[in-house]
Amino acid sequence: MSRVGEVCRHVRSKNAGPFWVTVDLFFRSEELFRRYRDTPALGPEVFERLYGTDAALVKRLPVDNLHMVKISFPRAKPQGWMGERDMHAGQHYARLLDIEIG
């Protein structure tokens, strides 16, 4: 069983405006990209569980030439709310690294 952190050479997250977070998963090879681009291990319910977002609004967009998958989702609370711990969502990706991807 491989983990996300093993099959990707780079994973990052960032705010995309005040209300959205976007995660970029760059796979190590074209083969790994093709194998995992549509994996249910990175499905919308996973993002609902990990980030408290609404699964129905999660967007997933593979980018073939870069061997990467972009996953975007609304923040559970807007950027800067009183319980904010990560203003730019720059560390949101870390909790994805240990997901077993197949």
Binding site: K14, N15, A16, G17, W20, T22, D24, K59, L61, V63, N65, L66, M68, K70, S72
Partner: peptide, 16 residues
Amino acid sequence: PESVSAHMLYESSDPY
């Protein structure tokens, strides 16, 4: 080509 096309990903929820 990679650094340029990759910029479409940055801080945007839809790269296309």
